[in-house]
Design a protein around this nucleic acid. Structure first.
Lengths: 110, 110
DNA sequence: AATTATTATCGTAATATTGCAATATAATAT
DNA sequence: ATATTATATTGCAATATTACGATAATAATT
């Protein structure tokens, strides 16, 4: 035991969980925010921005890519990473829906 | 090694990461969605809704509570859990900001 | 061809998460 | 008081994550 029982949940639940899990580390939040900040997305310097060793950063980038949050293009020598707009738009509407529904209900029982 | 280097990131980055991490498991996504669905929030039956044993569900609830996503009130014998509106509103605006900024930039380099 | 720069992968240690059986706790009901 | 119901905690095994040094892979530069 110890492995997540993915098969018992809906595809949407798993999809949201995968995205949230990928964001669930401050280094990856920092990477996303950095990618958002810089105009161009030539991103070799993410390593310099973060207080982590290069292999660690590379691993975090890989996880963000696996989750679908970022895309990477080979740019000659380096690699150009950037956020996938569509996925973030999906997260935006997911949390908007939940928050708006809560607002509507206002069952302040807790 | 192996522990997250929390101290190197900003408070906001850590806060978002903690929330996202808590949502980063399909069982906890399912719990949130269930809490959203039911009108009242007397929630002992979450265990029946999920394909997991009672201690496992209790643990997931604890993690959601630790992250601040849900609140719990003792309701006589049982416990009444419900989502913290404020925290979800915070997530809503965080992802809305990112998504809207991306939309504005439209630097489709990847 | 050798060097340099950039990113990825491997291997591994430390730590965290997941899941559950067994047990404990707390409130209600009998 | 005892049984019942609802939830939490403990302890533990299986698995996953985090971090990094060492090394590999790839492409540009000299």
């Amino acid at each position: 035991m110890g492995a997540t029982k993915t098969e018992h949940f809906t595809d949407e639940q798993n999809a949201i969980a995968i995205l949230a899990k990928a964001i669930g580390h401050p280094a990856r939040v920092a990477i996303l925010e950095y990618l958002l900040k810089v105009d161009t997305c030539i991103c070799g310097d993410i390593v310099n921005e973060l207080p982590l060793a290069q292999p660690t950063v590379s691993q975090h980038l890989k996880e963000l890519k696996n989750a679908g949050l970022i895309k990477g293009n080979i740019e000659g020598n380096a690699i150009c990473y950037c956020i996938d707009e569509n996925v973030l738009s999906k997260l935006k509407s997911y949390f908007a829906t939940i928050s708006d529904n809560l607002e509507k209900k206002k069952n302040n029982c807790c």
